[in-house]
Design a protein around this nucleic acid. Structure first.
Lengths: 211, 211
DNA sequence: GAGCGGTCGTGATAGCCTCTAACAAACTCG
DNA sequence: CGAGTTTGTTAGAGGCTATCACGACCGCTC
């Protein structure tokens, strides 16, 4: 197999170790959530002693930020891989969330107080949003124009130049907030013991976006 | 002032210290979130040495559980104090959430992996749900019956004997998930920099429940 | 009022964590 | 081969949760 010539052996090794650290980190997160992530434990698991890991990640926060970045990227991939239409987007989102709930909460869960997302992460987020706007732009306009539509027409910074006409931004926002509402409560276990099927609730909410 | 005769001085003192601990805990949570809560720091703040606090709360988890319980109780109070109708319930919820976002996340945020809520907490949660069902039971039935309505009719464990007829449970669930979706994304800061007014999004989502 | 039992606060300690610093070993590349 | 960078080590500071043994104190009872 051909190797990239611009990559020194050291860089190769470094990248490999960083990747393995992330792997273990994901395992830990899946097992006990992001708050329980311990650089020390990862180091020991990999057979090296605590501080060695700091050669690869300057701090716990740096590692977590990298994991959040990867989570966003994988969500963007999942969304990109879905068919263009709204329904398949919704089920791609749901499948991605159910595949690893902790990863979902890393993106949409309780924020760390001081934390502010780096630019490249917000860029990925807006790519996902663009995909949503695409999907809704293709739908027929349909219903009546709401006051919130008017407000959104005057505040379209977030659509970042996307040409989707008037009802689409509102519907894209509703897609995001409604499905997040249903998904996050399901993943957080707030529906357990209630008896109904969360998948059907999700479907019903998705339905509500079509009307 | 008359004092309760069933209360010994020791018990009075104990209750007072426990209350002050909780106060400091809320301050810390408001400042840096629940994950940053430190029994040690609280003890020092109160002028006593670390382990002394363990006389009052057996563990950090026990304190947090108590805080979650209080959060649920205060939400139940807020909801109980609101007028019966759906709109005032929604704005009571929103006001309660905005008053202390970290408290909101304590209730509806990323779950701690091992954690399972004690019975009395789930009891409070179902009282809140009953209030919601009340509000929707008073509304005219209106629209067409959905497949999800049928599913809910067969799975009404969670309504806990509440007599609200068919469309009400679905609408109460939608109230919960939609408003939570909008609120939690707002509180987590996912709308910052997007330009639109989260209050108007909330209002629009609330509107969507009336139809 | 004296004594006694339970409660409360203390310091010491174990064990975990993050992260820094100084030092030794290993590897790359000229 | 040799020099410089990179990597890993141990030691240690300072934080945390939590347990334990001990002394001090308080309030109830006699």
């Amino acid at each position: 197999m051909p190797r990239t010539s611009t990559e020194t052996p050291r860089e190769r090794y470094r990248a490999q170790v960083r990747a393995e650290v992330k792997e273990r980190a994901w395992e830990q997160i899946a097992a006990a959530g992001a708050s329980a992530l311990s650089l020390n434990a990862i180091a020991k698991q990999m057979g090296m002693s605590g501080p060695a890991l700091y050669r690869y990640y300057g701090s716990r926060d740096e590692l977590i930020t990298e994991l959040i970045r990867d989570a966003y990227r994988s969500l963007a991939d999942a969304v990109r891989a879905a068919d263009g239409d709204v329904t398949s987007l919704a089920y791609a989102l749901r499948a991605w969330a159910l595949a690893d709930p902790h990863r979902y909460f890393l993106v949409y869960g309780t924020p760390v107080p001081g934390y502010h997302a780096p630019d490249d992460i917000t860029a990925i987020a807006s790519e996902i949003m663009a995909r949503l706007l695409d999907a809704f732009a293709e739908l027929p306009a349909g219903e009546a124009r709401t006051p919130f539509d008017a407000h959104l027409d005057e505040h379209r910074e977030w659509t970042d130049g996307h040409p989707a006409p008037s009802p689409a931004p509102r519907r894209a926002l509703a897609f995001w907030t409604r499905l997040h509402g249903a998904l996050s409560l399901e993943l957080a276990g707030h529906f357990t013991g209630m008896g109904f099927d969360p998948a059907l609730l999700f479907a019903a909410e998705l339905e509500s976006l079509g009307e």
